[in-house]
Write a protein that binds this DNA or RNA. Structure first.
Lengths: 221, 221
DNA sequence: ACAAAAGTGTTTAGGTTACACCCATGA
DNA sequence: TCATGGGTGTAACCTAAACACTTTTGT
């Protein structure tokens, strides 16, 4: 196995992930407070360097697990940012992902080696971010909105069995507008992706039918 | 400016571009025959290493100019491929782009330093490709199809002024199915993106009105 | 005058939107 | 029995699809 011919400059490569969840009836994003320079003390997207022989997705999953303790996520590559001066330490190219986690799969946000603190923020409360992370976040929000319309990613924000009302709330929270209940249910059911279970939701009032994703819809994103 | 802390492995970073054009009433893609190992003699997507202080897009444009002599292209980032063993020489992460060039902007394909030959291929004639380039090509074709439906990228394959019939042929060639002439014209004109000029197409028969993109639609992709 | 491409409307079908009331349950 | 969320149908509107003939030009 020959080395790379010539003497090409090698930038550092990181992965970053915008992690979304629905908490407190809001779309929230996980941020970490940087414990080291540059931008020490600033809020930033979780992420880190890619290890040798580590696939990009594996690197993201590792970082997500270490920094926000999130397992069982939907992961999708978002965009690669490589402006020569995006990191003051030198050339760093970052492959950004966006991730969706069901609130049920979250444990408390934990600090890690180079993150002094981790916290969920509703979008309007997101502070100014390190590096070009605001640009990455904006792109992720746009992508989330777009994909919600033509894909089934909303299901990644819910537990395996859920009521149609809860699914509708996910759409309403992300799109930030109310949806008509009858039309929503008609549309979702006409897609023929859901299967009613004989489980019913608990709570104080009339129990709702819980639905699950149909077994033959395994690759649903 | 401090160096990157720790001793992170640094993969090599390349950019590759799937370049599409419409030639001979077909959707064609530019490939180069590799002049060096690995995969010497195989066909591959044009691309190369990113230079220090060079933005990713600038690197793609440089490679495109060097290897396929294509200027004036529409460029869009496609996906970043980073499987640990995708290049036998070692870790190489590639940021793949897809590009659209109007046939009018093409000069003959030229060889460059590490490409012994460059050639256009219609999709059904594409030979087996080096590295994971077939996967990249397939992804680019899918993206092209998808974006054709909801964006205006088709215009990047045409000269500044064009007839509706020619625009329709672009759609038909890429989607590989005939479109209804009246419905197509109605739809395109209803989008209100085009402006008729007083130019008329030449040729043996009834001249067609040529249209241009409206000036206020500068950011049209 | 003929060949070839340009240009033009209407009808039908399907999907999206707007909208209001009864039902089941726990407290 | 009341408060709360679950569950249901229909009419109006709009967009997409199907479909054929006349016009203009060069030869």
């Amino acid at each position: 196995m020959s080395p790379i011919e010539g003497n090409y400059p090698k930038p550092a490569v990181t992965v970053d992930a915008i992690v979304f969840t629905i908490r407190e009836e809001q779309l929230q994003v996980a941020l970490i407070k940087r414990g080291i320079e540059p931008f020490q003390g600033s809020w930033a997207i979780p992420g880190g360097f890619v290890r040798e022989n580590e696939a990009l997705e594996d690197a993201v999953k590792r970082e997500l697990y270490e920094e926000v303790g999130a397992g069982g996520v939907y992961l999708e590559q978002l965009y690669t940012f490589g402006a020569p001066n995006r990191d003051p330490r030198g050339r760093v190219i970052t492959v950004a992902y966006f991730a969706l986690v069901a609130a049920e799969n979250l444990r408390e946000l934990t600090a890690s080696t180079d993150a002094s603190e981790a916290q969920w923020f509703a979008l309007p409360e997101v502070p100014s971010l390190a590096f070009d992370h605001r640009e990455i976040l904006d792109l992720a929000v746009n992508r989330l909105h777009a994909k919600l319309e033509y894909s089934t990613i909303a299901y990644a924000l819910l537990p395996p069995a859920f009521s149609l009302a809860r699914l509708q709330r996910v759409y309403e929270i992300i799109l930030d507008r109310p949806l008509d209940k009858r039309n929503f249910r008609k549309k979702i059911l006409s897609l023929d992706l859901l299967e009613p279970t004989d489980q019913r939701s608990g709570g104080a009032h009339r129990p709702a039918t819980l639905y699950v994703f149909k077994a033959n819809q395994v690759t649903f994103f």
